[in-house]
Computed example of a mutant assay.
Amino acid sequence: MTKATALIFGHNKYSDEIISNVKDKYAEIKVFSLHEEELQTSEIELELFDLSDKWIEVGKHIDVENSMAFCVLEDIAQNIFLTISLRANFKDLTIIALASNKESANKLKMAGASKVIPLVETTSDIITNILEKPISSKVLHTILYEESELKIAQIKIDKESHFKDEQLSDIDWTRYNGIIVLSVMHQDMKSEFIYSSKAKRHIIQEGDILVVVGYEADIAEFENKIGSRRYVNWSHWSW
């Protein structure tokens, strides 16, 4: 079912990524900013809000049960307060909040967030890159913003890895049950969608990072088979 409205609180690179991901899945997207000057300089339409808002006007114009709020304020204290305020006023609203670490994730969950996802700089850049692909967008939307047992993990290629010095296009990915490899990130932190023509010619090197999707057990088995290790463990952030 298509959600009615996406409410995005915060105007920054993370809100831009979310807009790219959900723009085709919602009838309406509203982006809110705490800073009045941004209303004049932003390329997208913004609405001003205050952390002391009672949300009366917002509640009048959205279908709460079929909408979703994204709390992406970069000040974690403000993000927690915002989450508390939204939950107090909208008990049936789905609230997704970004967290900077495990401690803030716990606080956001206690504040009423439906789901918390990590604010990881390098992973954020990867998501921006692969969201340009429609199938990746659909998969990531489910994993990040809805209830899902699937995880995203970054697997770093060690010097002993079986993949080291192999060309991506030569690898038989069907051997690895339950794993979808989305992207490869090089040591210079540039990422490539794995099925792009450029990525297919890439020779895997020590330090490269594979971004994969799968269930926790399958990801662990994949690590063991290829002789590499988890770089960022997204399973710690699943609620």
Rank of each mutant, 00 (worst) to 15 (best):
L7N: 09
D92N: 13
D125P: 00
Q40I: 12
V116Y: 08
N12G: 03
S197F: 11
H141F: 14
L140M: 15
E223D: 08
D63F: 15
K200D: 03
W237Y: 12
L144K: 07
A69E: 04
A220H: 12
E216F: 10
K198D: 08
K102T: 09
P118M: 00
T174P: 04
A199N: 06
F222V: 03
I157V: 12
K156T: 11
Y145D: 00
S238Y: 01
E38P: 09
F81K: 02
S15G: 05
I180L: 10
I96V: 15
D53Q: 02
D24V: 00
S42I: 01
S15W: 07
N129Q: 10
A153K: 07
Y231G: 03
I180T: 11
A77F: 13
H61G: 05
V22E: 02
I56R: 06
S104E: 12
K225R: 12
K60D: 11
F70G: 00
M185G: 07
E149V: 08
P118V: 08
I157S: 04
V184D: 01
Y231S: 09
P134W: 02
I95D: 00
D218I: 05
F32I: 08
S104Q: 12
L39Q: 05
G112P: 13
T5R: 06
V139G: 00
L108E: 02
W234H: 11
V31M: 03
I204C: 01
K91I: 02
Q205N: 13
S197C: 02
Q187P: 06
V72C: 09
E65P: 06
I204W: 01
F163L: 15
H35E: 09
P134S: 04
T128I: 04
S104F: 13
L46K: 08
I44M: 14
P118T: 00
N129C: 09
L48K: 15
L34E: 13
A111L: 05
Y231N: 15
I96R: 11
W239K: 11
G207N: 10
W173K: 00
I152W: 01
L119Q: 13
K102V: 11
K225A: 12
S136P: 06
E37D: 14
W234Y: 15
I56S: 09
N233Y: 13
V213N: 01
Y14H: 12
I155Q: 00
R175V: 01
S42Q: 05
D75G: 04
K23Y: 07
K225Q: 15
S238T: 09
T174W: 03
R230T: 14
Q78A: 14
E147N: 14
I209S: 01
P134T: 05
V212H: 01
L144A: 04
A105Y: 02
V184K: 03
L182I: 01
D158N: 09
Q154M: 10
A77L: 11
S183L: 03
L46H: 08
D218V: 06
E149T: 10
D208A: 06
K200G: 04
A69P: 10
A113I: 02
Y145A: 00
N106C: 03
I84F: 10
T122K: 04
F49G: 02
Q154W: 03
L39R: 05
D218Q: 07
I204R: 05
